[in-house]
Design a protein around this nucleic acid. Structure first.
Lengths: 280, 280
DNA sequence: CAGATGTTGTCCATGGTCTGTCAAGTTCCT
DNA sequence: AGGAACTTGACAGACCATGGACAACATCTG
């Protein structure tokens, strides 16, 4: 199981080899096996532990304290997570509110909000949508699931305007009600140290304009899965784009972005957050 | 659990490190642990206490008095509830996500979910609506507030199907998106020992039918603030009414109820829950 | 009203601690 | 040979502690 050399771990985690050795020397974060020649040999669990360490550092803990906390149990491996995801899916299909919340709670206890969204919730909803298109899932199932999940995920969007980083305003376009991707983006941007003001689903463009005027953010992100929702409010959005850097995501292209004085965001929520974070 | 150093507490609260030390020295607001090197180590609870201190300062109290209250005995309940409701309203008007959640948390810690809804949230939204009609509140304010509150209130609707009481299915009519009253009703019905399956806003009638067939509840409650939302789905709703006792609430009257094979619910959410609970 | 007194947020000097990075010299593998 | 890794030691810059000082403001006093 212990097969990775230090350079590979560094590549995977973005932590320099020097720093990996320093963490080992100072805090005993990792205790890799050794090859006969003395080379450190790490396991996948070690990589996860380093990732956890990085998260704790981003949360503002001192390195010594972060190492102490990351030194405990590594994140549970994929099987346990998959079991909980499956339990969640089954509970939703049964309209079983209690079981669904329990599965969700367990996922949140074991993983970060971003990981839960990325690896469990979004794929689950995507799959549900596909099954629905194929006629295998009922409207009722889809409705119950997305309603419950919406409530839980909105609960993740809090305390986002704390701290001292640059500010961003996030909104779904007018009429747009799919906000899960936007929330995932918000969490990811938060991990980059930004402060986020989340306006949520179905934000009228005037609301956006008022918020932007009040906050003077370093970025404004508007998402729509149907480009007509953007086109319909083109003038107001262009005004917003003159007041602050505007990004659009979802069903948009370069031409539309240019028309709105906006920049285009594509890829998943996580890459998009990296892009925006790099802009300021 | 004392893990945060002073700089991180400063970042999270926006209070300078100097001031944190001054508050400790002068008022004993916080008594952090110390690391071996002498560094102050704070807990999450300390962060909350600082946030509370800031709120009291915003309310105009002198720092010494604010520290006394933030650190010491809580005030009697009623004034504090009013103060927290006011703080919630002010935070929402400022787009201040963190302060709003904190005020909400404190309300929930001190009162039941039903009381918070009945005495704080619903009146607050009603007042906001009125100010909006008079042009005193912006669309932006209204949107931000109801979005944040929706997320919090949805978080109250969990674990509702536990236990052994009679079952009820709750839904907003198709297109209807005002679900706060329905959630208040759900909490109240829960207090009568019922198990509640909550389908949420904008429930298509077919979804309702599937859920009712799957659950065989002792009551089905459908709410709409605009009666056309009920009339549009009259046939399916009448089918539902044949499968289980159906109640309609909101903008409806006896004639419409009769047409749907339903019974009429009026009055506030709490009386309505009493009515339904008495029916089984 | 002038002056005295108290309150409160901020600033500074000095000195210790923490932590990421770097360097030097060596060994291992292909 | 050359790239990657090893160990040890060092270092700069960020971070923190203490204690005192101070300016701005409010409140009280004669």
């Amino acid at each position: 199981m212990h097969t990775l050399r230090i350079g590979e771990v560094a590549r995977r985690t973005g932590v320099s080899t020097d720093l990996l050795r320093a963490w080992e020397r100072r805090y005993g974060l990792l205790q890799p096996d050794r090859a006969e020649a003395g080379y450190r040999l790490y396991s996948e669990a070690d990589v996860a532990r380093v990732a956890r360490m990085q998260e704790l550092l981003r949360d503002g803990l001192a390195a010594a304290e972060a190492a102490r906390q990351a030194g405990g149990e590594p994140e549970p491996a994929a099987p346990r997570r998959d079991a909980d995801v499956r339990r969640l899916a089954e509970a939703l299909a049964r309209f079983d509110d209690t079981a669904a919340h329990e599965a969700f709670d367990r996922l949140l206890a074991d993983f970060t909000g971003l990981a839960v969204l990325e690896q469990a919730v979004l794929p689950l909803l995507r799959e549900l949508g596909e099954r629905w298109e194929r006629g295998e899932a009922s409207v009722a199932e889809e409705h119950f699931a997305s309603n419950l999940i919406r409530g839980r995920v909105l609960g993740l969007a809090r305390g986002w305007d704390r701290g001292g980083g640059p500010r961003a305003v996030l909104a779904c376009a007018s009429g747009e009600r799919h906000e899960l991707g936007l929330i995932a983006f918000g969490i990811a941007l938060r991990a980059h140290g930004w402060r986020v003001t989340y306006l949520g689903a179905d934000t009228p463009p005037e609301t956006l304009a008022v918020a932007v005027a009040a906050i003077a953010p370093a970025a404004v992100i508007v998402v729509a899965l149907d480009r007509r929702r953007l086109e319909g409010d083109a003038e107001v959005l262009a005004d917003v784009g003159r007041a602050a850097p505007l990004w659009i995501a979802g069903d948009a292209d370069e031409a539309l972005a240019e028309r709105l004085g906006a920049r285009l965001l594509d890829g998943g929520p996580i890459e998009a957050a990296t892009t925006v974070a790099a802009s300021a």
